[in-house]
């Protein structure tokens, strides 16, 4: 009898999967190959497979994010040591993480400069993560690769990416909290 229930339950679970690639679908097709078509820097384009440096000095690529099946939406926030607006944003990002991480939100802070306007380093990423008690990833982007996606004078930038397709859903300067929350609610 238990076996019958188990089989029915499994079938029901399979039936629940809509099979779509949508961000709210709880994961779709296997993410074997990072998309290469339609790469660009604007909303609707596919985010290039950028690489950053973790606090341990290890590389973290967009492909790593893509291949983790628990990631549905990635929120990228560009930050710098001199940017107080970025510092103010950190507790808000922690709150978002606590609310949405279990539903598939992956937050990534990319630091491009320190408080002296020098290039960011793995050490800075470690300091940043510890100083603000961040439960999500912080990486160094000393080449400021995301600087080509927006007007860097208007840092921080907030970017939302659908990880299934790696398409850029939204790019905005500042931190439009209500907009980000609405999008996450819609997506997750």
């Amino acid at each position: 009898m238990r076996l019958i229930f188990l089989v029915i339950s499994l079938l029901a679970l399979v039936g629940c999967d809509d099979g779509g690639g949508g961000a709210g679908g709880g994961g779709g097709a296997a993410r074997d190959t990072y998309p290469v078509e339609g790469i660009g820097k604007a909303e609707g384009a596919v985010l290039a497979n950028l690489a950053f440096e973790t606090p341990d000095g290890e590389p973290l690529t967009m492909e790593d994010v893509f291949k983790d099946p628990t990631h549905q939406i990635m929120l990228v926030s560009t930050s710098a040591g001199w940017c107080t607006a970025c510092i103010e944003e950190q507790p808000k990002l922690v709150a978002l993480h606590e609310e949405f991480a279990a539903r598939g939100l992956f937050i990534l802070i990319t630091l491009f400069e320190d408080d002296q306007f020098g290039p960011a380093s793995a050490r800075l990423a470690a300091q940043w993560k510890e100083r603000y008690g961040l439960p999500f990833d912080v990486v160094a982007d000393p080449a400021f690769q995301f600087g080509d996606y927006y007007n860097r004078e208007l840092t921080p930038m907030t970017m939302l990416v659908d990880v299934d397709t790696m398409k850029i859903l939204k790019i905005s300067t500042g931190f439009p909290e209500s907009e980000v929350r609405a999008i996450l609610n819609a997506a997750l």
């Binding site: 949508g22 609707g44 859903l169 939204k170 907009e179 999008i183 819609a186």
Partner: peptide, 13 residues
Amino acid sequence: QALGAAAREVLGV
């Protein structure tokens, strides 16, 4: 819109 056409399609908004 806060979400572009492509994003609206992806998210079903």
